[in-house]
Amino acid sequence: MTILIIIGMAVITFLFRFVPLLLTNHTNGSSKVEALLEYLPIAVLSAFTVPGIIQVDPDVNLVGIAAGTVAVILVLIRKIPLLLVILGSVSAAILVKMLTLYF
């Protein structure tokens, strides 16, 4: 039964991701729809990231907040490679976690 539910979840998720890839072959979409789709990446990624990172450690919200803040600061300093941003952000998260555990 569990396996069947998992397959059901997989099918739903797959259809959402796959079917639009077939449709857009034919769209010449109106400019209004196109403009909205242009806003979509930033809108969906912002909406996804903010509660997500804050709740990343359900016990200590500060872990995610620290990681996010450090990531934003590092990104604003120019020419830092992606991997370094990630590394810095995760280090901040671990540091905060350690501090909350020992103090």
């Binding site: 990231t49 990531a71 990630i86 952000s89």
Partner: peptide
């Protein structure tokens, strides 16, 4: 499992690194 949530910030850090420069 204590430190695992902290490691998971890496996913979000990647997204932040991609979105923030666009702002």
């Amino acid at each position: 499992a204590l430190y695992l949530p902290a490691l998971n910030t890496s996913l979000y850090a990647l997204l932040i690194a991609l979105v923030v420069p666009q702002l």
